[in-house]
């Protein structure tokens, strides 16, 4: 008996389903959200979160975890609101140096066989400190062009939706379809056999980290485009949000099992969960707890499906 749905499809089913249910509930509570402006407002803030989630997912592809994601995105936001706006050349140089630092982190983690959690936790203080040095008080100004992109109003479909779909499609091709992405995921699945086939694991790790940095930089810049100004603590929540987004979207902590489309959907779900709770008029004191409850329900569903799938496989 052939399975009708592949395990990858089932993996995507739960996040897609939970997003749909949340969206329907939001529309039911607040029918006015069912408009161009409404959708844009609902999903606006999910664009940087989706980018950060993809960055985190890349790191998780090679069985690592980045605990500096929040501070790094904050640092980038500060750079974008100051250097990138005032002296673009210097700003771009700083961003390039940040990418190189990430690649070096990947090399260091691999060569010294260090736990990524320790290295990135240490780096989070570095990024945080640099961000405070650049912007001791909230301020700065977003570069005009990114502001223009983020508030642009394309016909029919809001910018937030177009951006999310673009992120999902581009990262899907990069990680799931390209031959380069296969190697990255192979490193997560069985690094030894990839090495035996003559690949350099160091190079693969460095490339993964550098690519993650690129996505995180896009997250920081797009965040500044939305908020117009930056703050050293602007994106601290992103560390946990991005991890939750990856897991919610069907990814796993180890084994190179990730889904870029799922990760974007996970990020959308997380942003929507916040609005949903506001529409329910739940007091902000309880919102974080309620958001956690939503996460637990979705992850519980996934566990259940995994079990069913395994039973089917054994039967």
């Amino acid at each position: 008996m052939r399975k009708i749905l592949s395990s990858d499809t089932i993996r995507l089913l739960i996040p897609a389903l939970s997003l749909t249910i949340l969206l329907i509930s939001v529309f039911y509570l607040q029918p006015r959200a069912m408009s161009y402006t409404g959708l844009n407002l609902l999903f606006n803030l999910s664009v940087p979160i989706a980018l950060a989630t993809i960055a985190q997912m890349l790191i998780m592809t090679v069985n690592d975890l980045d605990l500096s994601m929040g501070t790094f995105v904050s640092f980038i936001a500060c750079v974008a609101a100051t250097f990138l706006q005032a002296t673009p050349v210097l700003g771009i140089l700083i961003l390039a140096a940040a990418v190189a630092t990430y690649a070096a982190m990947g090399v260091l983690i691999h060569v010294r066989n260090l736990p990524s959690i320790v290295v990135t936790l240490g780096m989070s203080f570095v990024w945080g400190g640099l961000a405070v040095l650049i912007l001791p008080a909230p301020g700065g100004q977003a570069p005009e062009w990114i502001r223009a992109v983020m508030i642009s109003k394309p016909p029919f479909v809001p910018m937030a939706i177009i951006a999310s779909i673009t992120i999902a499609v581009v990262s899907h091709f990069l990680i799931m379809r390209s031959s380069f992405g296969v190697i990255l995921r192979g490193v997560g699945g069985n690094a030894r056999s990839v090495e035996r086939a003559g690949w350099s694991i160091i190079r693969a790790r460095a490339a993964t980290y550098a690519l993650a940095a690129v996505f995180a930089i896009l997250a920081g810049i797009s965040l500044v485009g939305l908020t117009t100004a930056a703050d050293a603590n602007i994106a601290l929540r992103y560390t946990l949000l991005s991890i939750a987004g990856v897991i919610l979207g069907g990814g796993e902590f180890t084994g190179g099992r990730v889904s870029p489309i799922g990760a974007v959907i996970g990020a959308l779900t997380l942003t929507l969960a916040g609005s949903f709770l506001s529409f329910l008029r739940i007091s902000p004191d309880w919102q974080i707890g309620a958001q956690g409850a939503i996460l637990i329900v979705v992850l519980g569903l996934r566990l259940l499906l995994n079990r069913l799938e395994r039973r089917e496989k054994r039967a």
Binding site: R185, N190, S193, R196, G255, G256
Partner: peptide, 8 residues
Amino acid sequence: ELSLCPNL
């Protein structure tokens, strides 16, 4: 020992 990447 089998050496394929199980996730691929």
